[in-house]
Amino acid sequence: MKLFFVVAFCLISVGSQSLPAQSTAEVEESNYNYPQGRITVPSWRFAHGPHVRAAFREVVSEFRSAVVEVRVDGARTAYGGIVGPEGWVLTKASALGDTITCRLADGRELAARVVGTNREYDVAMLKVDVAQLPFLSIDESTTPIVGSWLASVGIDNYPVAVGIVSVEPREIPHQAGILGIQLAADGNRAQVVRVFPGSAAAKAGLLVNDVLLRINDQATPHREALIATIRQFSPGDRVTLVVERGSEQLEFEALLMGRFPGLQPSRMEIQNQLGSGLSERRFGFPSAFQHDTVIEPNDCGGPVVNLAGKVVGFNIARSGRTETYAVAASSLAKLIPELKQAP
């Protein structure tokens, strides 16, 4: 009952502190992260609200021209950071699709192609064919300090969102991706006997009796090989399945899931989704630090900066109600040259 009194009181007394609308008009409200819903308190009071974000205006002013909106088929799926003057753009790999454009702070929208991808960190290097762009310098000695402010920079005057460093960099444990098929028990070949409705396999177009030959470049000659291979991938990873169907050999692309469709989500999963959407690809990073910034999945991929005017990392996943992961500058400093050189 106690829990319910809370809400009942919320509805009537939360509003007791609400102010007329003009009090919120002092700053722009673009990108306001919190659905207003039924909590009606003046926006200055939110720790990460528009007034507090406005205090970061000076902090982000030198960075926003080096940030892009990454768009797939015209819709923003991520942010990205320009990491070289020749049009190198670092972003979140799993947010990408076929037709990619980058929208700059000055309004230009440029076609981009993928040059390199690191699946472990879920980062990708894009290239736009424009020279002399402003770019971010990544200082590998910049470390995330617990309790320090972070601004997630977008292309506007104000940060997309702000928060603090919650946990120092650590390995984010892997969770196995799920394709959603049942395989023949005899195990001579990886043959499908059941495709679960709504699963990654069903969405990709797999059918009963298909035989899986390869996942990306890894051969899956038998049942165990397929299971072991799929387990290496994370939920949110896109994999190419090479399938034998009758006399044909076909290719499918599947977006792996975190659990079987139709299985009830656990209480923890439900709670983690109260407040914001979560990134599909949010587990299994070799190293990331955690911050408390509330962002949506399509706000990932861009830089987070501190009050000292340094890039602390790049947002890589919205992973729970209390957590957003970012790849630290020290990791980025190693990744960026590799990604630029990718064949």
């Binding site: 009194f5 809370v6 009181f9 919320c10 007394s13 939360v14 007791s16 502190q17 919190y34 909590i39 308190v41 009071r45 939110f46 720790a47 990460h48 617990v146 309790g147 928060g163 603090i164 460093v165 919650s166 946990v167 209480r267 923890m268 709670q271 983690n272 407040g275 955690q290 408390d292 509330v294 729970g320 109600r321 209390t322 957590e323």
Partner: peptide, 23 residues
């Protein structure tokens, strides 16, 4: 994990903040 927030409102026997919590 450390989270920063503010007291948004109070109902006497409880307070509501924007420090995000989960199970």
């Amino acid at each position: 994990p450390v989270r920063l927030g503010r007291i948004l409102t109070s109902g006497g026997k409880w307070i509501c903040t924007d420090c995000t919590l989960v199970g």
